[in-house]
Computed example of a mutant assay.
Amino acid sequence: MTIDELREFGLAELTDDEITGFLSSQRVGVLALSGGRGPYVLPISYGYDGEDRLYLTYVLGGSSRKATLTESSERARFLVFTVDSPYSWESVLLTGRLEPVPEERWDDLESDLPEAWRPALFASALDDQQVRVYEFRIEERSGVKHQGLPPGLEAGENT
């Protein structure tokens, strides 16, 4: 079904301002990269500049598939979502390009990155310098939300 067909059940598209607010209020999403045998998908924390860039911090091992696929992918997708109940949820889908951020620029990003959620293992990875920061330049964005009960289940109606 299309979004238009689902409107009668409470689905609505997010406005640009709602997308900006939503991305600003969340800290974790799902990154999808082109992989050889199918998409490579992983959860990852992010910082948002409030406009058109996300900043992703990678923890890397000796040979990182994530870093290799990031470098070879022309475009990537990033999904951010939250679910409060089956009748109250939001999601934003972004399409864009990933580029490494030179280490000398990392200090400039502090205003965008301190709010990013990070697993505890990041502290030791930072000490070992097994970290790389990438900038996700947003080229396309869309978002949908569902809030409220579908017809027939609203409060006070008999079912």
Rank of each mutant, 00 (worst) to 15 (best):
Q130H: 04
T95K: 14
L79T: 01
S34N: 11
T2Y: 15
Y134M: 14
H146T: 01
E115A: 08
G47S: 03
G148C: 09
E104I: 03
W106G: 00
S111I: 05
P119D: 01
E110S: 12
S64L: 08
L98Q: 01
T68G: 00
P102G: 01
G47H: 06
N158V: 15
P43M: 12
S88Y: 10
G38N: 02
G61H: 11
G38Y: 10
D4A: 14
Y46K: 11
V83S: 03
G96H: 15
V131R: 11
L31H: 05
F78A: 02
L11E: 00
R77W: 01
E140S: 06
R141P: 06
V80P: 05
V41K: 11
K145G: 02
E99N: 10
R37K: 11
A125M: 13
G156E: 10
E71M: 09
G50V: 11
E115G: 04
L6V: 00
E103P: 10
V92N: 05
G148A: 07
S124Y: 13
G35A: 07
L33F: 07
D128Q: 10
V30S: 03
W89H: 12
I3Q: 13
Y48H: 08
L56G: 05
A155R: 15
T15Q: 13
R53F: 02
D128M: 08
V133I: 14
R105K: 13
A32S: 14
R141K: 12
G152Q: 12
Q147M: 10
L79M: 12
